[in-house]
Structure formats: structure tokens, C-alpha cells
Simulated assay, not measured.
Amino acid sequence: MYDILVNSLNYEEWPRGVQYGTQLAVLMDASVTGAYVYPSPLYATPSFSTPELIEAVLETARTLEASALAAERPFVSWASSMGIEHAAWVVGQGILSDALVQIACWHDLLVLERDPLRTWASPSDLAALILAVGLPCIVVPPQPVKAVALTRVAIAWNGSPEAIRAVHSALPLLQRANEVLLLRGAPKEAFQEVSWKPPFDIDAYLQRHGIRARSQDLLTNEHTAGEALLEQADRFHADLLVMGAYGRTRFSEWALGGATRHVLWHARLPVLFRH
């Protein structure tokens, strides 16, 4: 992970997600890009407006853009003081999820802040971005994260393609951990209509990459899996939880698996999701 993208919900101060992503970049010796996105003034303009009202809306957008662009120097200076060698600041206008999907194309990891009161109205809104962005995404909880560390990392494992991709994406983070806990849930068929002999062995895969994980069976059902994952991660004192984000499109809406939805909206620790 060499290029970390952090979505900033503010340009006057650096919120939790920005602070976590920047500290993680320091830990990983990575670059960091702060991205602030504001909506197009077209969305704020009523259908029937006077020329004066339209001009007022446009002027407000111009002022906001200028203020956001002016935050580049403070952000780069702050990141540099943290130990970041390469930092950048970008400002986008448009729909937040669309903008982040575009800029994510030239990054390795996206850090998001779960902000249910302002930005994300529901788990589905945040999940739609995670499922569409094509990157591993770390979601930072509303609660303060005491320190950015990778001492203990937990993995939610069920053998699904999403879980495999999540582990693969998280390898640089897992390799820095002192302890890794593999929370084994009910297995899912990884690849339908294809059988592999021997089947994929997660323990051998991790060991091949220098990671020795201890396993713990997660005795739960589909409806309580998310709650059980968070409970065991908390008992393990995990600094990070890694899990696959299971979802599918249905009539252009995102339908999440129950465990993904619960963890996404209730986790009190940072979670790396990968679809």
C-alpha cells in the first residue's frame, strides 16, 4: 500500500478519518491524498429560480471552492509534520460517491469516516461506495481511535471470494501485526461450478506470506454473525478487523449480507472491507 486516499468531510480541521488515514500512512511509509468533495450548486438550485437566486447559489459554491482549495497548504504542512514525505490535497465537485470512485482509481486504499449524522444516511449509502470503489476500504468508527496501531488484527473468515480478496488486500497490514486471529465462520462455497484439489488453504496462504495466525471457530448463525464478530474482535483487543464485503445489485440498489451490514454500522474499531 503506497498511496492512501482519505475522504475529508471538513477542510477547516482534520476529522477522525483523515487523522487515522494519515497516521496509517506514516506507519506504512505511504503517501496520502486528502480529498474534499462538495455537491454541485445545480443540486441546490430550485427548479423555479430567479436569476438573482441562481447567482447567489453559484457565488456560494465559488466561495466554498476557494476556501477548500486554500486548505491544500495547511493539509500538506500538517501531513509533513506527521512524517509524510508525499502528501496531496484535491477538491472535487459532484456526488461524493461518484467522485471517490473516480479518484480511487490511482490509489491503493481508501479511508472513510462513518458519519451517520451528516454524510451517510444509512448503511446502504456507505456500502454502495465500498462495493463500487474497487479498493480495500477502511471505515473509521464515530468513536475516537486511541492510537493507530496494527499490533492485533482479526480476520473474519468464511472462505468466500470476498474474504479471500480482503485478506489478500490486507497482507501489508497483516505482516506488521504481532498477533493475527482468524475468526472462522460457517464456510461458503468460494467458487461455484469449479472444484480445486487441493482446496484453498488460508493457513498455508498466510504462512507463505510470513503470517502465523491462530484460529477460533465462530459458533453462530447467519443472523448473529456480525454481532459475534465484533464481540470476539473486542475480546481480542483488535486494532483492526479485516472482512469481505458481501453484496449484490438488485434493481440498482445494494443488498448487503447481514454480517456486513451489522459490522459496517456498529463496529467500534476500524474495519477493512473488500468486495
Score class of each variant (00 low, 15 high):
Met1Ala: 12
Tyr2Ser: 09
Tyr2Ala: 09
Leu5Val: 07
Leu5Trp: 01
Val6Asp: 00
Leu9Val: 06
Pro15Ala: 14
Arg16Leu: 09
Gly17Phe: 05
Tyr20Ser: 00
Val26Thr: 07
Val26Glu: 07
Asp29Ile: 01
Val32Trp: 01
Val32Ala: 03
Thr33Phe: 01
Thr33Arg: 10
Thr33Cys: 12
Ala35Ile: 06
Tyr36Gly: 03
Tyr36Met: 06
Tyr38Val: 03
Pro39Arg: 01
Leu42Lys: 15
Pro46Gly: 10
Ser47Asp: 15
Ser47Ala: 13
Ser49Gln: 08
Thr50Asn: 11
Pro51Lys: 10
Ala56Ser: 15
Val57Lys: 11
Glu59Tyr: 09
Thr60Cys: 04
Ala61Pro: 06
Leu64Ile: 14
Leu64Tyr: 05
Ala68Val: 10
Ala68Leu: 10
Ala68Gly: 07
Leu69Phe: 12
Ala70Ser: 10
Ala70Leu: 05
Ala71Ser: 14
Arg73Ile: 01
Val76Phe: 10
Ala79Gln: 02
Ser80Gln: 13
Ser81His: 10
Glu85Gly: 09
Ala87Gly: 08
Ala87Asp: 10
Trp89Phe: 04
Val90Tyr: 02
Val90Phe: 01
Val91Phe: 07
Ala99Pro: 05
Gln102Val: 09
His107Pro: 01
Leu109Asp: 08
Leu109Arg: 02
Leu110Trp: 06
Leu112Cys: 04
Leu112Gly: 03
Glu113Pro: 00
Arg114Leu: 11
Arg114Trp: 14
Asp115Glu: 15
Asp115Ile: 13
Pro116Asn: 03
Pro123Asp: 05
Ser124His: 14
Ser124Met: 13
Asp125Cys: 12
Leu129Ala: 10
Leu131Ser: 12
Leu135Cys: 13
Cys137Arg: 06
Pro144Val: 07
Ala147Phe: 06
Thr151Tyr: 03
Thr151Gly: 14
Thr151Pro: 01
Ala154Asn: 01
Ile155Val: 09
Trp157Cys: 00
Trp157Ala: 00
Trp157Gly: 00
Gly159Thr: 01
Pro161Phe: 00
Glu162Val: 02
Ile164Asn: 05
Arg165Val: 03
His168Phe: 05
Ala170Asp: 02
Leu171Gly: 14
Leu173His: 06
Leu174Tyr: 06
Gln175Glu: 12
Ala177Pro: 11
Asn178His: 10
Val180Cys: 05
Leu181Trp: 03
Pro187Thr: 06
Pro187Cys: 07
Glu189Phe: 02
Gln192Phe: 09
Glu193Ser: 08
Val194Pro: 11
Val194Arg: 15
Ser195Gly: 07
Trp196Ser: 05
Trp196Leu: 14
Trp196Tyr: 15
Pro199Trp: 04
Asp201Ser: 05
Asp203Pro: 05
Asp203Glu: 10
Asp203Gly: 07
Asp203Leu: 06
Ala204Gln: 08
Tyr205Met: 04
Leu206Asp: 04
His209Thr: 03
His209Gln: 04
Ala213Met: 03
Ser215Val: 03
Thr224Lys: 04
Ala225Tyr: 00
Gly226Arg: 01
Ala233Arg: 02
Arg235His: 13
Asp239Phe: 04
Leu240Glu: 09
Leu240Met: 08
Leu240Arg: 10
Val242Ile: 13
Arg248Ile: 06
Ser252Tyr: 13
Glu253Asn: 11
Trp254His: 09
Trp254Tyr: 13
Leu256Glu: 07
Thr260Cys: 11
His262Ile: 01
His262Cys: 02
Val263Pro: 09
Leu264Trp: 08
Leu264Val: 02
Trp265His: 10
Trp265Thr: 05
His266Gln: 15
Arg268Tyr: 00
Leu269Gly: 07
Val271Pro: 14
